[in-house]
């Protein structure tokens, strides 16, 4: 793809600006800002990756993955605003999910520890963890707020904080995991996923591209489950005191 084709393709953004204007959505400015940010961010990342791939250095690769995790944690934490330590809990959860999944893939030889392989794969893992962890804390926060009487009732009957929110934890965990599970069910039928599309566009035989995509699917199922589990069980404690009392003011 040359620069002129890319510039012409950018005219597609005009369609979304037109719809926003026509329907009086007042998001034209956000679309323009989003487009400019995407172009700048991707260009910078392109150059950084170009340098990291060329350097092929363990430390640089690890730093890149760490930065991705912190940025993802920061973004997902917005959904849990008001919960003390939510950035820390989400970042740790994404890191744990990423580390376990990457370690398994490297151990089984599915992915090699080279920046060209580790960074794109980690990107997919972290991106999905970010979305699912964000959904999980957001649901947890809402359920804790809406089910105060249920929680107080359970506590008054002698339940521990953990027992009192057992159902809420399940609901939150499911909320985070379901989009990935639903995505798995329609994979290849409703959508050709990003990695597979990229490989096919890059000239790889579709059969080989499918193999990679199957790996990615398994990988995402595992990482989302780990991240959602960690973030649920780390975060719910923030709603309680050590004496199994609902904290006032955590909203």
């Amino acid at each position: 793809m040359n620069a002129i084709s890319l510039t012409l393709a950018s005219s597609l953004v005009l369609i979304s600006i037109f719809i926003s204007y026509y329907q009086n959505l007042s998001i034209e400015r956000e679309i323009v800002v989003g487009t400019i940010r995407a172009v700048i961010q991707l260009t910078i990342v392109g150059y950084i990756l170009h340098y990291i791939f060329a350097a092929n250095n363990f430390f640089f690769t690890l730093t890149m993955v760490t930065v991705m995790i912190i940025v993802a944690g920061n973004n997902a934490a917005k959904r849990g605003r008001g919960i003390p330590g939510v950035f820390y809990y989400i970042t740790v959860s994404i890191a744990v999910g990423t580390a376990i999944t990457l370690a398994i893939l490297i151990l089984f030889g599915t992915v090699h520890f080279r920046p060209q392989e580790v960074i794109p794969v980690a990107g997919m893992i972290i991106g999905n963890s970010m979305i699912s962890s964000g959904l999980t804390v957001s649901r947890l926060k809402d359920e804790m707020k809406n089910r105060t009487l249920e929680i107080q009732t359970a506590l008054a009957l002698g339940a521990s904080a953990r027992q009192a929110v057992q159902k809420i934890l399940k609901i939150s965990l499911k909320t985070g995991m379901m989009p990935t599970i639903d995505g798995m069910k329609t994979l290849g039928i409703v959508q050709l996923p990003g990695m597979m599309t990229g490989l096919i566009l890059g000239g790889v035989d579709p059969i080989n591209a499918v193999k990679y995509q199957i790996m990615v699917t398994f990988m995402l199922a595992s990482t989302v489950a780990i991240s959602c589990f960690c973030v649920t069980f780390l975060t719910y404690k923030e709603f309680f005191t050590p004496y199994h009392q609902l904290k006032a003011g955590v909203k």
Binding site: L149, E150, Q152, T153, A154, L155, A156, L157, G158, S160, Y243, H244
Partner: peptide, 19 residues
């Protein structure tokens, strides 16, 4: 122990929440 205490001192709320 707070759990034992809540078993000895039960509570019924204005709106009965049944599980």
């Amino acid at each position: 122990d707070v759990i034992n205490l809540r078993r000895k001192i039960g509570m019924v709320f204005q709106q009965a929440h049944l599980f």
